[in-house]
Design a protein around this nucleic acid. Sequence first.
DNA 1: CGACGGAAGATTGTATACAATCCTAAAACA
DNA 2: TGTTTTAGGATTGTATACAATCTTCCGTCG
Lengths: 234, 234
Amino acid sequence: MNAKAKGATQDQKIYEHIFDAILEQRLAPGTKLTEEGLGEVFGVSRTIIRRTLSRLTHEGVVELIPNRGAYVAKPDIDSARQILDARRLIELALVERIAERGPQLKRELTLLRLLIDEEHASSARADTGTAIRLSGEFHLELAQLAHNEPLANFLRSLVSQTSLIIAMYQSSQQSNCAIDEHSKLLDAVEQGDKEQALSLMAEHLDHIEARLELVQNEQEVDLEKVFGHLRVRD
Amino acid sequence: MNAKAKGATQDQKIYEHIFDAILEQRLAPGTKLTEEGLGEVFGVSRTIIRRTLSRLTHEGVVELIPNRGAYVAKPDIDSARQILDARRLIELALVERIAERGPQLKRELTLLRLLIDEEHASSARADTGTAIRLSGEFHLELAQLAHNEPLANFLRSLVSQTSLIIAMYQSSQQSNCAIDEHSKLLDAVEQGDKEQALSLMAEHLDHIEARLELVQNEQEVDLEKVFGHLRVRD
DNA sequence: CGACGGAAGATTGTATACAATCCTAAAACA
DNA sequence: TGTTTTAGGATTGTATACAATCTTCCGTCG
C-alpha cells in the first residue's frame, strides 16, 4: 500500500502544501509560482507541478496566464463581490439542510467543536494565517454534513478565494473579532433551530464582509492632483 | 494572431469536441477514453489529451481512475439527486437575480430566443443529441446574465452532468415534451415578473426530473428469484 | 537623452522515452 | 476441473529533451 498509493498521495500532499500556504497568506496574492522552482522544492518534475497548478487554477486560487506562468490569484473587487455573493447563497442553503437534521448529528458536531478549539488556540497565539485557514476548514467541514458533494466542492473553491479576498482587502487589523460565532452557529444547528441558524450564518458572513474595504482602492491615479502643486513652468 | 492563439484554441477545441460528444450522448456513460486513442483522433500527443481529461474530470463528466484510465462518468442515483438538488438551488437564485433586471435585457434576450429556435429545429428533426445540448446551452447562456462567474461556471458543470443523468435514467422515450417552457420563462424574465419566472423555472426543473426514473434500477440481482423455478435437484 | 530593435537568458508548451502498473490469458499445479 | 501463477501486451505515470514564447537588457539610431 505504501508504494501503491504513493502517486496519488504525493500529488495530494504537494497540492495541499501550496494550497495551505496560499490560505495562510504565506504566499501573497500576485506571487509568481514558477514550475521549476516548485519542482525543486518538492523534489518532483514539472509534470507534477503542472498538474497541481492546473487544479489550483480550476479552484480559482491560482491564475494561469498562457506562456507567462502561474500567479497566486488577485481577485478584483467585482470578482470578490461575486464570490461572496455566491458563498452566501450556498452556505445559507447548506445550513438550512443541516439544521433540519441537527439533533441527529451529535457525533459530527463534536468534531466540529474540536476544530473551533484549534481555531481559538491559534488565534490566541496570534497565528493569523492558521486561524484563517482553520476558520475556512470549519465552514467546509460543516458543509460536508449536508451530504451534497457538488455543493461542498464548490464551497471549497469559494472559501479558498475568500481567504485571498481577506488578504487583499482586510481593512482593520483586528483579526477575527467574531471569535465564537462559529460556536453559536453550531448550538443553533444542534437544536435544530433552523431560523436561528440561518440568521446566525447570515450575520457571520456579514461580519466577514464588514471587515473588508471593497471600495475601489486602486483607482486611476490622478497625476494632476498628485503633482499639480509642483508645477515648475507655466 | 493565428499562431499566437493556436495553443489555447486547440486545447479549447479538443475539449469542446469531447464535451459535446458526451453531452450529445454520442459517448455513452462508462465509455473508456484512452489517451492514445484520443490523441490519434485529434493529432496531438497524450500530454494535451491528459490536460483535457483532467479538466473534464474536474467538471464531473469524466471519471479518472488512477492507473486505470478515464471513463465517461456514470453518476449513481444518489449523486444524481445531489446534482439536481444543487442545480435547483443555483438556477432559482440566478433567475431571481436576472428577473430583477429583466426589462433592461432586450438585446441579450433576443439572442436567447435564437437559441430556442435552434433547439426547436433540432427537436423537430428528431436530433435528440443536439436538442439536449442546446437545451443545456440555453440554461448556461441565461446564467451568464446574472453576472456571477463562479455561479455560472458551477452551473456549467451541473448542466453537463444532468445530460449524463438524462442519458442514464430517462424513462419515457418522449423527448422534451416541455418544448416551450424556455420561451415562457424568457417572457416572464423580460417582464420582470420575478414570482412568475421563479415558479416557471421550478416547474421546468420538476419536469426534467419527472422524466427520470431515479429509483434503484441496478438492484442486486436475486439469483434465487430468477432461476429458482429451474431447480433441478432437491 | 529617449525610443526602437535585436540578441541572450529564462520560462513555458509539447512530444516522447522510459518506468510502473494493470489486464489478459495461457500454463502449471492441486 | 478449478485455482493459482506467471508471462505478455497494453495503458497509464513520470521525467526529460527540445521547441516556442516571453522578458530583459544592451546597443544603435534618431
